[in-house]
């Protein structure tokens, strides 16, 4: 359960996120949409504890992101945009580092989880390849493996299918919807068909404000049959609220 309460972020004189509130319950795959610079990534970075909000807060499974950042981080799996990883480490070393950070001390449990994640993300043939030599698709999957490693109740994914080929996209979507049952999943994307295929709730954010927060079906019923037309209508420069 994630509850965002009046969260605001300023970067100098610019307000990136302006007084946003929403609540996400387990079982939801929330699609976070909006033009570039709308404040999607900033909101996600605040939820994951990377950025401190200028005002407002969020409660993640009972823990306040400002008062208990470490407890919050234990419960979140996060895939940052462009999925950074230490370039000089091999894939397996990197995942061992993540296992260390996530407190997997039991050797057999750790080994079992490693194998599980490696096969789930199809990383088997790059075990001993350094991260810097991996292709974009593999890098993205290493980032995904890192995010789901500790089987977190909350998963925050910043453009999880960016840079993947159609088959890999399909694969990642399948993994995401397979995990959705009892998790909160928040993902941002620019691919509207992905939202259709995956999400049961949509938030469109524009200039730091939420302009819509509904299910895909409700949006279709009220605003029109085509998501991309709705998106354009709500976020075009003319429509600045």
């Amino acid at each position: 359960m994630v509850t965002v309460q009046n969260i605001t972020k300023d970067f100098g004189p610019n307000r990136a996120v302006d007084n946003i509130s929403f609540e996400v319950t387990p079982g939801t795959i929330l699609g976070f949409l909006g033009p570039n610079g709308a404040g999607k990534s900033t909101t996600m970075k605040m939820l994951t504890g990377f950025l401190t909000p200028t005002s407002g807060t969020a409660i993640v499974n009972g823990y306040d992101i400002i008062k208990d950042p470490v407890e919050v981080k234990k419960r979140i799996g996060y895939l940052p945009e462009s999925s950074p990883a230490y370039p000089e480490m091999t894939m397996i070393e990197f995942l061992h580092f993540i296992a260390d950070c996530r407190g997997f001390t039991d050797v057999t449990e750790r080994a079992a989880r490693l194998e599980e994640v490696i096969s789930l993300c199809h990383l088997d043939n790059v075990r001993n390849q350094t991260v810097e030599t991996l292709s974009k698709g593999y890098k993205q999957r290493v980032g995904f493996a890192q995010a789901i490693f500790h089987d977190p109740p909350i998963l925050i994914l910043d453009e999880p299918t960016d840079g993947l080929d159609p088959n890999q996209k399909h694969e990642v979507r399948k993994i995401i919807s397979g995990m959705a049952k009892d998790k909160v999943i928040i993902l941002s994307t620019h691919i509207l068909e992905e939202v259709d295929a995956l999400c049961n709730r949509i938030i469109i954010i524009h200039n730091g404000h939420i302009v819509i927060d509904q299910t895909p079906d409700e949006i279709r019923k009220e605003l029109g049959p085509k998501l991309d037309e709705v998106f354009r209508k709500l976020t075009s420069p003319a429509h600045t609220s």
């Binding site: 970075k45 950042p69 470490v70 981080k73 996060y78 940052p80 990883a85 230490y86």
Partner: peptide
Amino acid sequence: RSGTIELLFTLPIT
């Protein structure tokens, strides 16, 4: 520069 700081500071480490 490489963005790994975002990874490091979203792991449960102060």
